[in-house]
């Protein structure tokens, strides 16, 4: 099993955000996590990636049989966990390419691999640019600076392609994308899918799942996964909305 989340609980400041999440992800699988706003979807991604302001209050996360929560954020990345951000930040003056080279070599150093030669790095860059249809001009610009929303999201997928992680979490990658950009991003992900890696796709709408077809769909509500199913669950949610999911939880908690 690649990822095993057991009864994960976390809070921000004094607010309990995750109240016992359980989830198992195997290599080769794509899981979608859906749910209404404020249900804890992005928080789950942040907790897994190790964002500082989230405090884990209970539970366990095994990543490739290692205790993920013991690792620093950078070591989680080096172990092969990738988060495609909902709001990628801009870093002025740092070129995209220089940033990627640093990232790639840091990850390689962690695995005792030698620094990638320039020629090899450039070959890899070109190959992946093509694969995810990423504009070569953007590669040499400052990291996300002045990028449109769509370009930022595509840059996330380009980075994903370059770093080749075991587990990728896409945090509402579809938000703010028009249909063409959505298709390009989804195509990129589909090309990168293999039996060695896995994806967790966090989304509010089922639209993205027309393009990235998930093996499993989970509904996160009020800090817990309240329902799991296959693709059909997403279609059902699209049709009925989230209200029918909310009810049983609310009544159960009374």
């Amino acid at each position: 099993m690649l990822l095993n989340i057991k009864n994960l609980q976390a809070k921000v400041e004094d607010k309990q955000i995750l109240k016992g999440v359980n989830l198992q992800v195997n290599a080769g699988e794509v899981h979608a996590i859906m749910g209404p706003n404020g249900s804890g979807k992005s928080s789950l991604a942040s907790v897994l990636a190790g964002r500082e302001n989230f405090e884990v209050t209970g539970g366990k996360v095994l990543f490739d049989d290692k205790d993920l929560l013991e690792f620093s954020p950078e070591d989680r990345a080096r172990e092969g966990l990738f988060l495609a951000f909902q709001y990628p930040v801009e870093i002025p003056g740092v070129s995209n390419i220089n940033f990627l080279r640093t990232a790639l070599n840091e990850i390689r150093a962690y695995h005792n691999q030698p620094t990638l030669e320039s020629k090899e790095f450039l070959r890899l860059t070109r190959e992946n640019q093509k694969l995810v249809e990423f504009d070569a001009k953007l590669t040499n610009r400052s990291l996300n600076e002045g990028f449109s929303g769509g370009e930022k999201k595509r840059n996330e997928i380009f980075q994903l392609a370059m770093l080749n992680p075991k587990l990728s979490i896409l945090d509402e990658t579809d938000s703010g994308l028009d249909i063409d950009a959505l298709r390009i991003v989804a195509n990129g992900v589909n090309k990168l899918r293999s039996d060695k890696n896995a994806f967790i796709v966090i989304t509010h709408y089922q639209r993205l799942l027309d393009y990235i077809v998930p093996d499993f769909v989970h509904v996160l509500y009020d800090g817990r996964i309240v329902k799991s199913g296959t693709r059909e669950l997403a279609l059902e949610l699209e049709e009925k909305g989230y209200d029918w999911i909310k009810e049983p939880v609310t009544s159960a908690s009374i």
Binding site: A49, E74, F85, I91, T102
Partner: peptide, 22 residues
Amino acid sequence: FYLNQRGIDTEKAVALIVNGYA
């Protein structure tokens, strides 16, 4: 955090940001 999440430790992250700025 963004740079950390790409495998770059905090020390190197700040160096990157500052050098980019300057």
